[in-house]
């Protein structure tokens, strides 16, 4: 069921949606957003691609199997929680750095953001694994 309009639109929409999903992830700590909704949006973008083209095409575009994203996400989340252990603090104590970046000014980078990135990857991987394997039925 490939339609020319859908596939052309998707070609433009996909990068926009992915960028927006990352935007949602990054701003999530201060504004509505975060890893859950970001991951879901990215998954929806890829699902759109799969509908517009084919599951095979989406898998080629992804390069890595979505299942690997689940594992990577869980690892990142656990690692971000384990990082404070090195400093002798309890598991999942938030750690923050404020480096000065020339163009962007003062940034706030912390382990909770890393954790949210893990959530993003797990949600993306889970959703894509479910949808793509079902679509292949």
């Amino acid at each position: 069921m490939t339609s020319l309009i859908l596939s052309t639109t998707t070609r433009f929409l996909l990068p926009l949606l992915l960028m927006f999903s990352i935007f949602l992830l990054l701003r999530g700590h201060n504004e509505p957003g975060g890893g859950f909704v970001g991951g879901l949006l990215a998954a929806a973008a890829f699902a759109l691609h799969a509908i517009a083209y084919s599951v095979g095409a989406t898998r080629r575009l992804l390069i890595i199997d979505p299942r690997a994203l689940i594992g990577a996400g869980l690892l990142i989340a656990v690692a971000s929680g384990a990082a404070p252990l090195a400093a002798g603090l309890p598991f999942m104590t938030g750690q923050w750095w404020s480096p000065e970046v020339p163009a962007l000014g003062k940034l706030q980078i912390g382990t909770p953001l890393l954790f949210d990135t893990g959530v993003y990857l797990v949600v993306l991987g889970v959703t894509l694994t479910i949808i793509l394997s079902l679509a292949e039925e």
Partner: peptide, 15 residues
């Protein structure tokens, strides 16, 4: 969290 978990459970139940 309940919304997202619910989605996972529903997908599993469906399959």
């Amino acid at each position: 969290t309940a919304i997202v978990i619910g989605f996972g459970v529903q997908a599993f139940a469906l399959v």
